[in-house]
Design a protein around this nucleic acid. Structure first.
Ligand code: FES
Ligand code: FES
Lengths: 150, 150
DNA sequence: ATCATATCGTACTAAAATAGTACTATTTAA
DNA sequence: TTAAATAGTACTATTTTAGTACGATATGAT
């Protein structure tokens, strides 16, 4: 499908939300309420983000989550890789040899090339770019005119 | 996940195989045998490829499939779009408004930008580029599976 | 005309990945 | 001590993807 999962989508949304309240600790409940993502799902994602050092957490009363210092500078490529484990769009080219026809396949190099291209495309956009609309406008205007359907 | 499906993978493999036997009609059975994809699955994919005008078909005895004339010139972007229906990596930015938090999401533009970049990366690679002539020569002359590098 | 062969359409089942939830334990400030 | 919050984990449900089956139709050869 060539899709990122909803979970990753939510994760970025949450990160963006945390970035809005700079440095302040927000509880999972607050975040769920602001993003309109269900509480259990928010909690699940926040735990994952924490384990991957994208957010810092404070346990106990008046605890919560806040953005890790350098999270804003992480590239989208690295972000997706962190959240999904892998950034190769083909199963064939990932580390775990799963494709059953792999031994008879002669186009593996091609997929490899495509993976590289996609990775390049995602490498020099940071989470910070995703969050600041002005920078996004810059990106869009300097590259390709974008028509929104969203 | 940011992955193309196995089916798409198989499809490209089949297209590459058809390209090897230029213009000649191959039966689904032959293709299944050569690619080591199971016959029913091969048939399923070939039907889809035919419906999308990527291969031409001939029914009846001594029928089969062959590559459509201009299929080699189709871009990978267009190819994936044809096979998957859509090339946007985010559910949020696709045509069917499915994301439940869409109305509260303020990062839609960002995903749109990323989609654009990925699309851009895949736009000027053609199916023909996927098929390395040198590797194909090797494949033909030795008739031995080419060693993969992953 | 008949037959063997092959595609066409569609419907179905199975497997895997994703999404979402629940529960207990631990931490911490008041 | 207590209330409020995160941490870990295990579980179920849903959705998507993969794979199969079968009757109908077309076509070339005998
Ligand atoms: S290795 Fe899976 S199709 Fe090439
Ligand atoms: S519309 Fe789904 S997270 Fe933005």
């Amino acid at each position: 499908m060539l899709r990122i999962t909803k979970m990753t989508d939510y994760a970025v949304l949450i990160l963006a939300n945390l970035a809005l309240h700079d440095k302040k600790f927000l509880t999972a409940k607050e975040i769920a309420s602001e993003t309109h993502i269900s509480l259990p799902t928010s909690q699940k994602i926040l735990k994952k983000l924490n384990r991957n050092n994208l957010v810092i957490s404070k346990q106990g009363a008046s605890g919560g989550y806040a953005l890790e210092d350098d999270t804003k500078n992480i590239s989208v490529a690295a972000l997706l890789k962190t959240l999904n484990g892998d950034l190769s769009i083909t199963q064939c080219s990932s580390n775990d040899h799963q494709c059953q026809v792999e031994d008879f396949c002669n186009i593996g190099d091609a997929w490899q090339m495509i993976n590289q291209r996609v990775q390049w495309a995602l490498n020099d956009i940071t989470l910070g770019d995703l969050i600041h609309p002005t920078r996004i406008e810059q990106f869009i205007s300097t590259n390709i005119p974008v028509t929104r359907n969203h």
